[in-house]
Design a binder for these strands. Sequence first.
DNA 1: GCCATGATGCTAACACTGTAAACATTCCTG
DNA 2: CAGGAATGTTTACAGTGTTAGCATCATGGC
Lengths: 214, 214
Amino acid sequence: MASDANTVNIESDAAVKARGYHHGDLGAALVDCGMRLLESGDAESLSLRAVAREAGVSATAVYRHFADKAALLRALAREGLDQLAQNQRNAMMHAGGGAAGLDASGAAYVRFAVARPQLFRMIMSNIAVANGDVIDQTAAAPERVSGAMRQLRDAIAALAPPGTSAEEVRVIAARSWAQVHGLAMLILDGQLPADDALIDAVVKGRTLLPQGKG
Amino acid sequence: MASDANTVNIESDAAVKARGYHHGDLGAALVDCGMRLLESGDAESLSLRAVAREAGVSATAVYRHFADKAALLRALAREGLDQLAQNQRNAMMHAGGGAAGLDASGAAYVRFAVARPQLFRMIMSNIAVANGDVIDQTAAAPERVSGAMRQLRDAIAALAPPGTSAEEVRVIAARSWAQVHGLAMLILDGQLPADDALIDAVVKGRTLLPQGKG
DNA sequence: GCCATGATGCTAACACTGTAAACATTCCTG
DNA sequence: CAGGAATGTTTACAGTGTTAGCATCATGGC
């Protein structure tokens, strides 16, 4: 085994023997390793080769499980999105649902972003694709929108006073999500402090009622 | 001139003669070219080498004007931030200031993002550094916050009813900015349609008054 | 007027990246 | 047990950021 610059594998021949030539479930292992790399700091270091290295496998083995880097990122985004949704559901239930639950869910969203910034950013860059949603912003299909958005819209519709139009619900849902999402992003970009009190204050003040602007 | 793979320069020797060995003001030219590349679509293609190519200069000439790629990106972010601020000021003045002006400014923010998504994203990834602001999110200096934020806070303070506490103003300003910023980001990420009506509706409904949550 | 020197450009080279092609090994099915 | 289908490996290539060393030009002191 000529271990030149191209040979990425770190494992000793013995180690390779130990796990056998075939990994077992490399696809899942790669997602795991990618997740770990994303959490352990620098997002720049998330290269295909780094993930392969972490999994103890040659760089090109990845291509047996993912068409290209984007495909792996999509898988990671999907996984991260699941965890985020889980966090939000937990927070919502813990708060007993209703308006308080919606607030708790929003705060959980922001806290998730703060706790795992690289992962959160990556999710958001790939959510459209990961979700199978529209990406083309110019597409004349403003109705086709993400599953998360639909869920939020439904939750808000349930809380809105009867008689609130579907259009109003849509706008309020967009505003509510934008507020939480923007807070998360501004914190990640260092424009707002990652202050728990601020997060709670901003999230709690979301306007769920239609209003003619004061 | 052995034009191997490393030689990035496209210009003919004659063209080089035309502009002379020295460029004149390469620093500014590089920012210009970077700006053009960011506007002409794919953000992936914004490599140092691509910018140098666009400027008709060897790849490493860049290093005479910027310490590294991050420095060039910071310069681009600063330039973009100026343009964004200009757009907002124009919109605000055109709307005659006041609450309507603040709304107009917010809408301009979102429309800028929609019109130049790569540039906007790049600005936001580099704004903290470009601004000379804090980056360390864990830093115990929640008061040191970006110039843009301070401006917004002042504008909101001017509109808030007298007696509104500084803390309330801070929260309201954060919420207001987060709302606008989140809307822009969600549109860029394909989660919300780039719909002018939606933008106006979301922006107009910002809550500028303190409220105990309905 | 000349020429040292710094500013600015250039080529060559390195380590890294994503990805394709061809080869090797193992598993599984007929 | 044979022979593909899966899965992993090496090799290779083009592209990236960055460094080192050389080339050219502008300019100020003699």
